[in-house]
Amino acid sequence: MNVTGDDVRAHALSLPQTTEQFAWGMPIFRVAGKLFVTLPEDETSMAVRCPILDRDELVLAEPGKFWIASHESGNPWVRVRLAALDDREELAAIVTDSWRQAAPRALLDAQ
């Protein structure tokens, strides 16, 4: 099953207080004003928030799926190849986790 940028968009926008904008030449998604997903590379990948230690482990474990863009190496972000995702459930888990990292505490507590 191929996961697409439209699948990313649909799931991201289903999460509370999420907005889509266009910046840096790509679609970006914010929760309560904080960035949590971008769709670079013509929407064939996504960048999501991920603690650096976890990110490094993901890249080592599945380099065909995850990688670190050079300009994001010092930041808690990881890139994900959409075609390498197993299914929409995996996509949803990754996007939702990134959303949780960016969402304000009050919004998380209301869930």
Results as ranks from 00 to 15, higher is better:
Met1Trp: 05
Asn2His: 12
Thr4Ser: 15
Asp7Ser: 04
Asp7Trp: 05
Arg9Asn: 07
His11Asp: 08
His11Tyr: 06
Ala12Asp: 04
Ala12Ile: 09
Leu13Tyr: 08
Ser14Thr: 03
Ser14Phe: 08
Leu15Met: 09
Leu15Tyr: 10
Leu15Ser: 11
Pro16Asp: 07
Gln17Leu: 10
Thr18Tyr: 09
Gln21His: 15
Phe22Asn: 12
Ala23Cys: 03
Trp24Ala: 08
Phe29Asp: 01
Gly33His: 13
Lys34Arg: 15
Lys34Asn: 14
Leu35Arg: 08
Phe36Ser: 06
Val37Ser: 07
Val37Asp: 07
Thr38Ala: 13
Pro40Leu: 14
Glu41Arg: 14
Asp42Glu: 15
Asp42Phe: 04
Thr44Pro: 01
Met46Asn: 00
Met46Val: 03
Met46Ser: 01
Ala47Val: 06
Arg49Trp: 03
Cys50Gly: 08
Cys50Thr: 09
Leu53Asn: 09
Arg55Cys: 07
Glu57Gln: 10
Ala61Phe: 07
Ala61Thr: 13
Pro63Ile: 07
Pro63Thr: 06
Lys65Met: 05
Phe66Tyr: 15
Trp67Glu: 07
Ile68Thr: 14
Ala69His: 11
Ala69Val: 05
Ser70Asn: 13
Glu72Phe: 15
Ser73Ile: 14
Ser73Asn: 13
Pro76Lys: 12
Trp77Phe: 10
Trp77Gln: 00
Trp77Ile: 05
Val78Glu: 03
Arg79His: 12
Val80Lys: 01
Arg81Gly: 04
Leu82Ser: 07
Ala84Trp: 06
Ala84Thr: 08
Leu85Lys: 12
Leu85Asn: 06
Asp87Asn: 15
Arg88Glu: 06
Arg88Phe: 01
Glu90Tyr: 08
Leu91Ser: 00
Leu91Lys: 00
Ile94Arg: 07
Ile94Met: 05
Ile94Asn: 03
Val95Thr: 06
Asp97Met: 04
Ser98His: 06
Ser98Gln: 10
Arg100Leu: 11
Gln101Leu: 14
Gln101Ser: 01
Ala102Phe: 01
